[in-house]
């Protein structure tokens, strides 16, 4: 007798837990063949609110971690993703990607995580530095995370866009609230499971599924969100985000590119969500003593 398969319930990811949406609502996206992908949480504005609270709570600890440690954790995410490759390939196929392309997409996603893992403790060496001021002061600039980042993930991919947007944001020490691809959300939730088993502290990444139209405003107007990444191509939506961002002067970053491309990664994706802090301190010059020898 054939064994009955146990189906997966897709939930959202907030503060390191997998609750259902507080609204109790769901939607059922379908693939091109008309097959249902599953019952997916239709998150509400209150879920957005809860996710931002969780992200803010996680921000302090995550940003103060040693950059080396963040690198280790990003590498660990890559490891865990590699280990669950088959599951992601299967989900990608269900969402309409060919097997070959699906395998490639997961591979690129793993490599991208490894790439950003390596950046964590090198960002300030490359992007910051000592400034040769004319007065008797030591002056240096370092990068610091912007804070809580809202990410509207690439809507055209299920995994590689999402990973390409989350990785640089958390590599820099930010926490984030991510709106997954509305139409093809399966990998987002499975990726949350990967994160949850990879030593990423709860709340550093929060992932919501549902209607981008519905969640965009509460996220982009939220006064405790410091920046928005918009990784899709709808110009009117971008304008909407830019207007929402005004009240607390969120930094708005817009990317549109083929995330499978090898060039769709780089230091600037990290520094775009970082601030420059410049520190001054006097240098005492003891009279008579010189450094010549």
């Amino acid at each position: 007798m054939a064994r009955l398969e146990v189906l997966k319930t897709y939930k959202i990811y907030i503060g390191g837990a997998f609750p259902r949406t507080e609204s109790g609502r769901y939607y059922t996206p379908k693939n091109a063949k008309g097959e249902a992908l599953g019952n997916i949480c239709l998150s509400s504005r209150k879920d957005v609110r809860n996710a931002v609270v969780a992200a803010r709570k996680a921000f302090g600890g995550w940003s103060e971690r040693a950059a080396f440690n963040r690198g280790q954790i990003l590498y660990r995410i890559g490891e865990m993703l590699e280990g669950r490759k088959a599951q992601f390939v299967e989900e990608l196929q269900l969402q309409g990607v060919s097997k070959a392309k699906a395998e490639k997409e997961v591979g690129v996603a793993v490599d991208r995580l490894v790439y950003y893992a390596g950046w964590c403790d090198k960002v300030s060496q490359v992007s910051g530095g000592v400034n040769a001021v004319a007065s008797s002061h030591f002056n240096f600039s370092v990068n610091e995370p912007t804070g809580v980042v809202g990410i509207i993930a690439d809507q055209s991919t299920s995994l590689i866009g999402l990973v390409s947007q989350i990785a640089p944001v958390i590599a820099g020490g930010n926490s984030c609230v991510v709106l997954a691809s509305e139409e093809i959300p399966l990998c987002a939730i499975t990726f949350a499971e990967v994160l949850n088993s990879s030593d990423v502290p709860g709340g550093v990444v929060n992932i919501l599924t549902g209607s981008v139209d519905e969640m965009l405003k509460p996220l982009a107007t939220h006064m405790d969100v410091n920046a928005i990444v918009y990784a899709s191509t709808d110009a009117s939506k971008l304008k909407e985000i830019q207007e929402y961002a005004v009240d607390n002067l969120k930094r708005v970053r817009h990317y549109s590119q083929d995330w499978m491309d090898a060039d769709s990664q780089g230091l600037h994706f990290i520094t775009d969500l970082m601030e420059i802090k410049t520190t001054w301190h006097p240098i005492e010059n003891i009279g008579g003593a010189t450094s010549s020898y």
């Binding site: 040769a132 007065s135 600039s141 410049t278 001054w280 006097p282």
Partner: peptide
């Protein structure tokens, strides 16, 4: 120190 400025300093 306070209120120091320099062209090299962001």
């Amino acid at each position: 120190t306070y209120n120091k400025f320099d062209p090299t300093s962001p």
